[in-house]
């Protein structure tokens, strides 16, 4: 008994095993999957095209050139869609609870959250990454950056921070769905809204919104703050240079709050059963 308990899979193994099952499920419908993947790649491409159309009419947006905007767009989209790939299963929780299939996850001897993260995973979530990384690479190549080691390291650092911030938001989405099973769309403001806002220079949105997006919902750390350093722009808010690197701190704090919200939501579920 104890021996078996010791070998019970941890978070990562549970997560990967569940992911694999969902991926293989999706691949049972090969033709459909291929068509949906082509479509998904195309849709993501048209969004990128929209950015290019805007820049065919203006020289700069919020003080950023096309090359710089491509970099911003690329980092935000890549971070969002990697987080989407990894954590977006929380979005399906409301439906699961309504159908009564959430209970099945609770009677397994493994963590609930990794099972939820992997829920409904499909390889089609890789598609938007093509245009995201396309924009990112185009931006990196064409933006007039004075490259230093620090700037180079900041690029993957930005992506990881962005994934972490969006990931924490997906955890909030899960907690929210447990609490309010019939209002799942409400969280889209933060998730897809956040994806949209961070895809453009935050300087477009004005001072108050920028402040909110830094200290309220720390979306400003997805890519905006480190990008200011990489591209050599001053911070319109005039925040100290340290903020360019503070993303992981904010992300960690956000995960702390998100995980306790999740635990609270689970407790709520266990006491109400709905």
């Amino acid at each position: 008994m104890d021996e078996a308990a010791a070998r019970t899979p941890g978070v990562v193994v549970t997560y990967l095993a569940s992911m694999r099952m969902w991926a293989r499920s999706a691949m049972q419908y090969r033709t459909s999957l291929i068509l949906v993947m082509i479509y998904g790649t195309f849709v993501a491409g048209t969004e990128l095209a929209a950015l290019l159309v805007i820049y065919s009419n203006v020289q700069s947006l919020g003080g950023f050139s096309l090359a710089e905007a491509l970099y911003i767009y690329g980092t935000a989209q890549a971070a969002f869609f990697i987080s989407d790939l990894l954590f977006t299963g929380t979005e399906y929780l409301g439906a699961r609870i309504r159908m009564g299939t959430f209970d099945a996850l609770l009677v397994r001897p493994v963590g609930v959250l990794p099972q939820v993260f992997a829920d409904q995973f499909t390889p089609r979530r890789f598609c938007p990454l093509i245009s995201a990384f396309g924009a990112l690479v185009a931006g990196l190549v064409s933006a007039p950056v004075h490259w230093t080691w620090l700037r180079a390291v900041l690029v993957p650092y930005t992506l990881l921070t962005g994934v972490a911030v969006f990931g924490a938001i997906w955890v909030f989405v899960g907690a929210f769905q447990v609490m309010v099973t019939d209002a799942s769309e409400a969280m889209n403001i933060v998730t897809y809204g956040g994806q949209f806002m961070t895809s453009y220079p935050l300087s477009l949105y004005g001072r108050n919104l920028m402040l909110f997006l830094t200290f309220g919902i720390p979306l400003g750390f997805v890519n905006w703050q480190p990008t200011l350093y990489v591209l050599g722009h001053p911070d319109p808010l005039g925040l100290p240079t340290l903020f360019r690197f503070a993303g992981p701190l904010f992300a960690a704090a956000l995960w702390g709050v998100a995980l306790s919200a999740w635990r609270g939501a689970l407790r709520h579920h266990c006491s109400t059963g709905s």
Binding site: A4, R7, T8, V13, T14, M21, S25, P109, V110
Partner: peptide, 18 residues
């Protein structure tokens, strides 16, 4: 698992329950 062979669901439980 709805779309997978019965065998696969059993294999997953094999792992989850160690």
């Amino acid at each position: 698992w709805w779309d997978l062979p019965l065998r696969d669901s059993f294999a997953l439980l094999h792992r989850m329950y160690a």
